[in-house]
């Protein structure tokens, strides 16, 4: 059984004026101890998917339209609020996009880490404080700084604090939403390396959201490419990097993708992603796709298995035309 299985997840943001289809029928699987990379342009619905797993979608506008999120055999969407709270921070924890604002400015970093340990660890406050300090040391922050406040730390150190907080209760799944995007390039690698080490030592599975193909290549076992709220290609790192199929993935990699070449950045593709409040019929990518036919504009595409461990959402690829 997989650690996490997301089936047909759809999340919409409904307001009086618009109906944003942020996530549409997403299927993802994360195996115990493995890392899944989730890649896509801005607005593709990556953060929404991640928040959806923890049921942290903004209320009241955010709504689950359909789907199941099976974590360790239990559907999180059917869990009670209490059950959900015992999952959050304990079994699944999350690192957010921006470390600058992720910490509470008026509580010491030690407090903020100890809080989650005390809550889930069933230990005394003193013991929680002690363990919080250990966590800080593990991410390379000196013990005596536990009593300091977030404004006394640099961005990179704040992100380390956030990572320490996320790993404090030994979660089985860590969701990292662009954990290094807000950081200086020079410390991105360090932070990622540290995360990879900690994760390996503890056997934590990870959902790594990023724009950066270099990061995916170095950290992930599987890759899912997201476009307009859908997963359009999904497979092992090897398959996606050596044998990408979907025209959008091909576009992302540029013409000749390679694991060895310095393909760090996503290549821009002509045109814009459709507005999630007014998605087109048929394939969501057809108006930017060089291979699109009339059929693409009218028929819904399914994410179909091409080979074992490689799924693609494209009618022409499935027919072997590309």
């Amino acid at each position: 059984m997989s650690l996490l299985e997301i089936k047909n997840l759809s999340i919409h943001f409904v307001t009086r004026y618009s109906d944003v289809h942020a996530v549409n029928g997403v299927d993802l699987t994360i195996e115990e101890g493995k890392t899944l990379g989730l890649v896509g342009e801005t607005g593709a619905g990556k953060t929404t998917t991640a928040l959806g797993i923890l049921r942290l979608i903004q209320k009241p506008q955010g709504r689950y339209e359909s789907g199941e999120i099976i974590f360790k055999g239990k559907d999180l969407l059917k869990a009670t609020d209490d059950e959900m709270r015992s999952v959050r921070g304990n079994e699944i924890s999350m690192i957010f996009q921006d470390p600058m604002t992720a910490l509470n400015p008026i509580l010491t970093v030690g407090d903020q880490i100890a809080e989650v340990i005390h809550l889930h660890g069933k230990c005394s406050q003193a013991e929680a404080n002690e363990r919080a300090v250990k966590m800080l040391e593990m991410v390379g922050i000196r013990a005596e700084r536990a009593g300091e406040y977030p404004h006394q730390f640099s961005g990179g150190m704040k992100q380390r604090v956030v990572i320490a907080m996320a790993l404090a209760c030994n979660p089985s799944l860590l969701i990292a939403d662009e954990p290094t995007t807000a950081l200086d390039v020079t410390i991105q690698a360090q932070v990622l390396e540290m995360m990879a080490d900690l994760k390996k030592g503890r056997g934590t599975a990870m959902l790594l959201i990023t724009h950066d193909l270099g990061i995916v290549a170095e950290n992930c076992d599987d890759v899912a490419i997201m476009y307009a709220g859908e997963v359009i290609e999904y497979g092992t790192l090897e398959r996606i990097f050596h044998n990408p199929k979907h025209p959008y993935t091909l576009g992302l990699f540029g013409s000749i993708p390679s694991l060895d070449k310095d393909e760090e950045r996503l290549h821009p593709i002509e045109g814009l992603m459709p507005d999630p409040a007014a998605l087109p019929a048929g394939c969501k990518f057809h108006d930017r796709c060089a291979y699109a036919t009339d059929e693409c504009a009218s028929c819904e595409q399914e994410l179909a298995e091409m080979e074992s461990g490689h799924k693609v959402r494209c009618a022409r690829v499935m027919k072997g035309e590309i």
Binding site: M84, R85, R88, F96
Partner: peptide, 9 residues
């Protein structure tokens, strides 16, 4: 949101 993600009430 961070506080919520920690499972606090």
């Amino acid at each position: 949101r961070t506080a919520r993600s920690k499972g606090l009430s």
